[in-house]
C-alpha cells in the first residue's frame, strides 16, 4: 500500500534529487579541473612535448588561460559549464570539447543500450535455467556459464574472440570495417553484454531461489499452472527490481568496457574520442568526457530508482 505524500513534499524531494545530481556532476568536474592544473608537471609540456619552444608554450598557456589566477580560471570553467561547454579542444580549436564528446555519445549509448538488452536477456535466461532446471545438466551448465562470465575479463576474451571470429572464420566484420553496420554493432554489443549478463544472472538467480521457496509460487503451481508460466509470469517479476538496480550499478563498468571495446574494434564513439584525446593529451576533451560520464551516471541512477519503484511496489519510499 503506498501512502500519498503531500504534493509539496514530493516536489521538494524531486528538487533535492536534481540539486544533488547537479552537485555530483559539479564535484566531479571540479576534481578533474584541479587535477589538470595542480598535479605536478607542466600541462603545456604534456601537450607539446619536452622539446617545444618557450613561445609555443606561452601561446598554449594563454589559449588554455593557464596564466590567469586559479580562482578566475575556475570561474571561467563554471561559466562555460553553465552553457554546456568546457572550452575549445586542443587538437581542433574551432570546436568546443564538449561538442566533440556529445557528438560521439549517441554511438556509444546505442552500443551500451544494446548490450544492456542482450545482457539482461542472457542473464535472466541463465538464471531461469539454473533455478528451474536445477537438477538437470542444463541447470549446472548455466551455473558454470554465469561463473565463467563473471571471472573471465573482457580485455582477455574480446581480442581473442575477435581474432577467431573476424580474422579466421570471417563470421563477424573486421575491426575498422566501415561497412560493419548492424552486424558490427551486434557483435560489439554481444561482447560487452557478457560481463553484464553474468552480473544479472547472479542477482536473478538469487532472487529466483528466494521466489522458488515462497508460498505464492506454490499456490500458482497448486492451481495447476504450467511450469513455464509459473516461472515467467509469477516468479520472474520479483527479480526485476534487483536486476534494474544491478544494471544501473554496472554503468561504470559498461562505460569502461565500451572505451576498451571501441578502441579494440575501432568503432567511432566515446571510447575512441577518449583514446585519441588520451594519446594527444587533449585535456579539455578528457575533462568533457569525465563530466559527461558523471552526468550519465546520475541520470541512469535516478532513472534506475524510478523504474525500480515503478516495477516493484515494495521499493517505493
Amino acid at each position: 500500500m503506498t501512502t500519498r505524500r503531500p504534493a509539496l513534499d514530493r516536489v521538494g524531494a524531486w528538487l533535492a534529487g536534481v540539486i544533488g545530481a547537479a552537485l555530483v556532476v559539479l564535484l566531479v568536474g571540479t576534481v578533474v579541473f584541479f587535477a589538470f592544473r595542480l598535479l605536478p608537471g607542466d600541462p603545456t609540456a604534456l601537450v607539446l612535448g619536452d622539446q617545444a619552444g618557450e613561445a609555443e608554450r606561452a601561446a598554449l598557456r594563454a589559449q588554455l588561460h593557464l596564466d590567469e589566477p586559479l580562482a578566475r580560471q575556475y570561474g571561467r570553467f563554471l561559466g562555460s559549464l553553465a552553457h554546456g561547454q568546457v572550452g575549445p579542444s586542443l587538437r581542433r580549436p574551432d570546436v568546443d570539447a564538449a561538442t566533440l564528446v556529445l557528438d560521439a555519445l549517441p554511438a556509444t549509448a546505442l552500443l551500451a543500450a544494446s548490450s544492456v538488452a542482450l545482457g539482461a536477456t542472457l542473464g535472466i535466461a541463465l538464471a531461469l535455467c539454473s533455478v528451474a532446471l536445477r537438477r538437470r545438466v542444463a541447470g549446472r551448465v548455466a551455473d558454470r556459464l554465469i561463473a565463467l562470465g563473471a571471472s573471465v575479463p573482457l580485455l582477455a576474451f574480446a581480442p581473442a574472440a575477435t581474432w577467431v571470429l573476424a580474422v579466421r572464420l570471417r563470421w563477424v566484420p573486421l575491426p575498422a570495417d566501415p561497412d560493419a553496420g548492424a552486424r558490427g554493432l551486434l557483435y560489439a554489443a554481444a561482447l560487452l553484454s557478457l560481463p553484464l549478463g553474468a552480473a544479472v544472472g547472479r542477482i536473478a538467480r538469487a532472487s529466483l531461489e528466494v521466489a522458488a521457496q515462497s508460498p505464492f509460487l506454490q499456490v500458482a503451481r497448486a492451481k495447476g499452472l504450467g511450469s513455464l508460466r509459473v516461472w515467467l509470469v509469477h516468479a520472474l517479476p520479483t527479480c526485476v527490481g534487483p536486476i534494474v538496480t544491478v544494471v544501473a550499478a554496472q554503468l561504470g563498468a559498461l562505460l569502461g568496457g565500451a572505451v576498451v571495446l571501441e578502441r579494440l574494434l575501432e568503432r567511432r564513439g566515446l571510447g575512441t574520442v577518449v583514446a585519441e584525446a588520451l594519446a594527444a593529451r587533449d585535456l579539455p576533451v578528457l575533462e568533457a568526457a569525465v563530466i559527461v560520464a558523471a552526468a550519465l551516471f546520475v541520470v541512469v541512477q535516478a532513472a534506475g530508482t524510478r523504474v525500480h519503484a515503478a516495477l516493484d511496489p515494495r521499493a517505493r519510499a
Partner: peptide
C-alpha cells in the same frame, strides 16, 4: 560505498592519469 562502486571511475581514472606526464 554505493556511489563509489557504481560511478564510472575508469573514465575519471583516465582523465586524472592523463594529466600526469
Amino acid at each position: 560505498c554505493d556511489f563509489v562502486q557504481a560511478f564510472p571511475s575508469f573514465v575519471v581514472a583516465l582523465g586524472v592519469l592523463a594529466a600526469i606526464p
